[in-house]
């Protein structure tokens, strides 16, 4: 209960802060657009956290062989995929108003499509195996493999390929967040992480209750 009230308060602060303070990167042309930064970046980071959690639970399943970890791993991967789609949509809207088009196959955009494909393949693997133990073994191994490729597509590929997204090579602007940006951005990050953990624990409880009945 404390967490839910806390989440409500943090989200209210983030939504107010988004509109009250000056936008991040206020020196650029048309700075108002950059207010989406407070939602786009935390969602993308939560995607990574969710996939890391899926990998961790897969690893725990392989070392203990308890099916509860397999269901945790698949829930984390599912939530990660939802956050991945959210990051993609918010990024696409962001791109429409900064670069002019919704989608232009920037390395960052291509890499998020590949990331999505990796985890969609994970779910098609799960649906192809009917035996629960076998499915748990195979999908745990795949979640490990997929995470290696995910780390590469998130952190390395867009940083060594020229593109428009911040962080590409040759990108001279280093984002320095001002104090007013940080006091909104860090709560936003915390809020999305808490939101993810809350939905995750709810889904884990639902899955375990469904198993009992």
């Amino acid at each position: 209960m404390v967490w839910k009230i806390g989440l409500l308060l943090i989200f209210s602060w983030v939504i107010i802060g988004t509109w009250v303070f000056e936008p991040p990167m206020s020196s650029t042309f048309n700075p108002e657009i950059y207010r989406i930064f407070y939602y786009h970046v935390p969602v993308a980071l939560v995607t990574f956290i969710a996939y890391a959690l899926a990998m961790y639970q897969g690893l725990r399943y392989l070392s203990t062989k308890k099916l509860q970890y397999d269901s945790k791993s698949s829930i984390a991967a599912l939530l990660g995929t939802i956050f991945c789609v959210l990051a993609m949509v918010s990024g696409s809207i962001f791109a429409r108003f900064t670069w002019g088009v919704f989608w232009n196959w920037d390395p960052r955009e291509t890499s998020i499509v590949v990331l999505l494909l990796i985890y969609l393949a994970y779910f098609s693997l799960r649906s192809a195996v009917s035996d629960p133990v076998k499915r748990a073994n195979l999908s745990a191994v795949y979640s490990l493999l997929g995470f290696i490729a995910a780390v590469f597509t998130i952190f390395i590929w867009p940083r060594i390929t020229p593109g428009l997204h911040p962080g590409a090579p040759g990108d001279s602007k280093i984002i320095v967040m001002s104090f007013n940006t940080l006091i909104v951005f860090l709560p936003a990050l915390a809020a999305f992480i808490i939101l993810f953990l809350w939905v995750y624990s709810l889904s884990v409880r639902v899955a375990s209750l469904q198993k009992e009945t």
Binding site: V114, L117, I118, S124, L125, V129, L138, V141, T153
Partner: peptide, 30 residues
Amino acid sequence: IIAAIISKTSTKGVLFAVLSFPLILPLLIM
């Protein structure tokens, strides 16, 4: 390793391409 995974599943041929394509894509693009 993908071949090892799919040998246990029911739809082998299709799944092999589906699983290995996204994993191999970063390597291929590099």
